[in-house]
Amino acid sequence: MIRIDGSKGEGGGQVLRTSLALSLVTGKPFQMVNIRAGRSKPGLLRQHLTAVKAAAAVGEAELEGAELHSKELTFRPKSLTSGDYHFAVGTAGSATLVLQTVLPALLAASGPSTLVLEGGTHNPAAPPFDFLTKAYLPLVRRMGPGVEAMLDRPGFFPAGGGKFEVLVQPAPLKPLHLLERGNVVRRQATAMIAQVPYDVAKRELETVGKKLGWLAEERRVEELKRSTGPGNVLWLEVESEHVTEVFTGFGERGVRAEDIAEAVSEEARVYLEAGVPVGHHLADQLMLLLALARGGSFRTLPLDGHAQTQIETFAHFLDVKVSVEEVSPQVREVSVR
């Protein structure tokens, strides 16, 4: 039985999700204590509990401690099973994080799977649906498996109510080497609004234009006529020869549209000036795929706490070595072998 202290490293939900994913793939059971001890509301919240139960369904696992606010969990997987699954968070908690918990396992399953997920699709502190489809899933497909995701309806915080479907065609993961970004071939800034004044989107896009110099034809408003609650998301898509990156900001009550746009623009500016192919958020997810493929490399920005936590969690389940080399003050090369 592997024992993991959830308070170590980043101290949030990531170590739990990664542990669940790796437990499913390897068949190794684990016990975790101090779950999300580094957060203001420690223990399992609704979206974490949904991820645990989703992993249990996929792995026919035995559970102990799977209840709201629990700070300890024992997870014993029995058999990795493909099939048709429907997982609902029940709140505005992130459904995309639930997907990232079970997808690595389903990529290694014996047959195809279909998932329907309900909850938040565009949440702060979680990968939005557009990041999955434009940045993450294309890399999964390059490594072998086939994965497609279709958005039925968006779900914003705090109303939730989003829904999307994912089709998974498993295949062995092949190592991937992503050391060059290549030339930028397309840039697109999208301000999505639902039950929010059009002026908010207009101000966000004007700020992107001023901060990054993106042209009017590279900026667009997407106004949703159907959603369960109000929401505003700004994402910047940078498509290069070898990779696409997505940077996202979320409108918040009491925060100026210009401030949201300036923060997202700054994140994109740092990425573009560094010349790396992989940004911070994509690095966390790509590292897990490479660990499961037992090989690969990529260049990224200096690693944050989430990436370091990923590396530490791998060591509990996998016999892989992750090395991080400083190429320059703003560039790191991550190698998995």
Rank of each mutant, 00 (worst) to 15 (best):
V327D: 09
A95R: 03
Q169R: 15
V246D: 03
G11S: 11
E60Y: 06
V334K: 08
G93H: 11
E206S: 14
R219L: 07
L106D: 08
E118A: 14
A55N: 03
A135P: 02
L167W: 03
Q310P: 00
K211R: 15
E222V: 14
F75K: 12
I4A: 09
A159E: 15
F75T: 01
P172C: 11
L318D: 04
L137A: 10
D304A: 14
S328I: 02
V208R: 06
L151T: 03
L22Y: 10
S79E: 14
A261C: 12
E62L: 13
A66V: 07
M1E: 04
L103T: 02
A283G: 07
G249Y: 08
T81Y: 04
G27W: 05
G6I: 13
A201C: 03
E223A: 15
R76W: 15
T91Q: 06
R253E: 13
L80M: 06
Q47A: 08
T300Y: 06
E239T: 12
V58M: 01
H281A: 02
L49V: 11
G12Y: 04
G231S: 07
R253V: 14
Q188K: 12
F129G: 07
P154R: 15
R269T: 04
V185N: 07
G144S: 13
R39D: 09
E180Y: 08
V238W: 05
A171F: 09
P29R: 04
R332F: 00
A56W: 11
H86N: 13
Y271N: 06
D152C: 12
V238T: 14
V331W: 01
E67V: 13
G296A: 10
R187S: 12
A95C: 13
K225S: 14
N123T: 14
L16K: 01
I193P: 12
P154L: 04
